[in-house]
Amino acid sequence: MTELFFQRHRRLRKTAGLRSMVKETYLHKEDLIYPIFVAEGENIKNEVASMPGVFQFSLDRLAEEIDEVVELGIPSIILFGLPLEKDAVGTQAYHNHGIIQEATRFVKKRHPELVVIADTCLCEYTDHGHCGVVDANEQILNDPSLDLLAKTAISQAEAGADIIAPSNMMDGFVTAIRQGLDEAGFADVPIMSYAVKYASAYYGPFRDAADGAPKFGDRKTYQMDYSNRMEAIREATSDVEEGADFLIVKPALAYLDIIRDVKNNFTTPIVAYNVSGEYAMVKAAAANGWINEKEIVLETLTGMKRAGSDIIMTYHAKDVARWLEDK
C-alpha cells in the first residue's frame, strides 16, 4: 500500500492546552469602550426598546452605571447626549452646561481614572436631526458646520473629556477640530475620528436610543456608500493627514474587510464600532433561544480583533467583561 503524505494540522488542536498555546488573537477588557446615553431630566433610567439591557440615564442615576463599568474593569466609555431642547444649529451640543459637558464633569469627578470619550456631533441636538447646518433648500452645508463642530469639541475638552470623537462626516472636520483644540490650549487632547462611517441600516436602534433620526431625507450625502472599499482609504488618509489619533470603522460586522484594509494601510490605532443593529440582532436571537449569546458575542468580537481592530466600541462590553472573568 502506498504511504499517504499529508499535513496533520489537528495535532495542534488535540487538547485545550495545545489550542491555548497556539492561539493567535485575544480579546481583553482593556480593548473595550462602552457607550452610555445620558439624558437631561431627573430620575431617568429608560431601557431602549430595541436594545435590551441598554438604558438612557439622567445625571442623578448615572452613578449606578459608571460604578458598575469601573467595577467590571472596563477602562473607557463614550458619552452620547439627549438634550431637552433642540434647535436648527444644535446649540446644546456646544453649550458649556450641555448634557455631555455636565455628564463628563460628573464622571471625571467620581472616577478620574475612567477614560471619557465625547461623541462630537450635532444630530442629537438639531431639530432636523442632521449632522450639520441645513439651508432653506434642505441641503447640509459643510463649511458652516465646521465652526460649530470645533466649538463643540472645545466645550467638551473644557469639561474634561479625555478624547474627542467626531462622528459627523463633514469634509475637513478633523482639521477644524484639531485647530480649534490647539488654539484653545488642548493640544494634548486626542481625536478619535469616525473616519470610515458608512450610511448603514445597522444604525436603526441607535436612533431610538439617541433620538437622532433625521426629520427629512437621509445621510447619504455625507456618510459613505456601503458598496465602496477604496473610498475608506481616501477618507482615512485625509483624517490621518489632518491630525486624527485614532480611526473608527463603523459599522464593524459587515465591514471586516474594511477594518483589515485600514489596518494594513495605517499605523494609527483602529477602533471597530460594533453598532446598535449588530447588538440588537444578537439580543433578539438569544431571547428566542436560537443562539448561545456568550459564544456568539465572543466569537464576533474576536473576529473584529482578528480583522485588525485594536479597540472595540460595543454595547456588549459589560457582558463581555463578565464572561472574560469567567474564562
Rank of each mutant, 00 (worst) to 15 (best):
E3I: 12
K29G: 03
A284F: 07
R61A: 01
P214H: 04
G289A: 05
M1D: 12
Y198W: 01
C123Q: 06
D162S: 13
D319N: 12
V22G: 13
Q223M: 11
V38R: 10
M304Q: 15
T175D: 15
Y194A: 11
L253K: 06
E231T: 08
V107C: 14
Q56C: 10
E24M: 13
E42P: 02
N142E: 01
F266C: 02
T267K: 10
I291L: 14
L298F: 05
G132H: 11
R8C: 02
T91A: 06
V275W: 06
A103Y: 09
K263W: 00
I191C: 07
R8V: 07
N142T: 01
H128G: 05
R19D: 01
V70A: 13
E65S: 12
T152S: 15
Q92G: 01
I177S: 08
I248D: 05
A39I: 09
L148R: 07
I78A: 08
Y203V: 00
D211V: 07
L298K: 11
Y198C: 09
R219C: 02
L62Y: 02
M1A: 14
G160L: 06
G132C: 03
T91G: 10
E299Y: 03
L149E: 04
F55G: 05
A201M: 08
T221S: 15
K318C: 00
E158I: 14
T314M: 03
V282S: 04
R61K: 15
L12E: 13
M51N: 04
R13W: 02
D135Y: 08
L122K: 10
E138Y: 15
E325S: 13
A201Q: 11
F186L: 05
P52V: 03
S155F: 03
G41N: 07
A63L: 12
A103G: 13
I99C: 12
G98P: 09
D188G: 02
D60G: 10
T104H: 12
Y34F: 12
L27S: 03
F6R: 14
W323V: 06
A209T: 01
W323H: 05
Y34T: 14
A118L: 04
L141W: 03
P144C: 02
V297E: 04
Y273M: 03
S145Y: 02
